[in-house]
Amino acid sequence: MNALKTTVLALFMSNFFQMNAQNHIDHMVWDQILLINVSDDGKVNYPGFIRDKYLFDKYFKSLADNYPKEESSKEEKLAYWVNLYNAIAMKMIIDNYPIKSINDLENPWKQKQITVNGIKYSLDDIEHTILRKMGEPRIHFLLNCATKSSPKLWNRAYTARNIMTALEDKSHQFINNPAKNVITDEKVNVSMVFQWYKDDFNNGDIVSFINQYSTTKIDKIMDQEYMEYDWSLNERR
């Protein structure tokens, strides 16, 4: 069934690229590859991505050639840069697969992987110099660096149409996912994401931010209440 899906996808996308190349930002190819190779719980079929690497590389190149302009909407910019971040992480894994963790690579956060409008970007560049400066803390629940403790990789592409709804939905999902945060009346253990990016969440008021989304409300977070981060690959086996 997957082989049939890939064949149909390849034929469709071949025509799609011919008709739409260089015209506008479109994440349809990424959407379809994700749908085929990522489960609903965010587990990734990396051999599947390698099988579809020709299409992935086409999409990746399209991001270098088609990018938001100054006058583009905030929604389009957010969708583009979040998709690009996740695609870069994916590229580094499938280019070096099999590996056990993105941290097996040499300085993965600083590797310049793509040139957009004359500027070379790494994961850190996109996260810190683009996305965090857009003043939208919920992006931290959409960015996936191919690890088990990351917010799960959505098996759909982000678009200007769905990005604002996704920011809200993924915040709820991440904060109330017991694999990412344990928040009960008896125990509080939250993701290291809240420690690493503390200032992004209500100017450091992590508790008030979490309580906007958590089904169980908390009063405080102690230093010892941050969960150990699992850097192993978010792989479907």
Rank of each mutant, 00 (worst) to 15 (best):
Y121R: 08
Y121A: 05
S122N: 10
S122I: 09
S122Q: 07
L123N: 02
D124N: 15
D125W: 01
T129G: 03
I130T: 07
R132I: 13
R132T: 11
R132D: 12
K133M: 12
P137R: 08
R138K: 15
I139N: 00
I139M: 05
H140Y: 12
H140D: 10
L142F: 02
L143A: 05
L143C: 07
L143P: 01
N144P: 09
N144V: 12
N144T: 12
C145E: 02
C145I: 06
T147F: 01
K148P: 00
S150Y: 03
P151G: 11
P151Q: 10
K152I: 15
N155A: 04
R156A: 09
R156E: 09
R156F: 13
A157Y: 02
Y158W: 07
Y158L: 13
Y158H: 06
Y158N: 02
T159Y: 06
A160P: 04
A160M: 06
N162T: 11
N162L: 09
N162E: 07
M164P: 00
T165F: 11
L167M: 12
L167V: 06
L167H: 03
E168F: 09
E168W: 04
S171W: 02
S171G: 09
Q173F: 07
I175A: 09
N177A: 12
N177W: 05
P178C: 12
A179F: 10
V182K: 14
I183D: 01
I183S: 03
I183E: 05
T184S: 15
D185A: 14
E186F: 11
E186R: 13
E186Q: 14
K187W: 04
V188Q: 03
N189L: 14
N189R: 14
V190K: 00
S191C: 08
M192Y: 12
V193T: 15
V193P: 00
W196P: 02
K198M: 09
K198I: 08
D199K: 14
D199P: 01
D199V: 07
D199G: 08
D199C: 03
D200R: 03
F201T: 05
N202Y: 08
N203F: 04
G204A: 10
D205G: 08
I206K: 01
S208T: 15
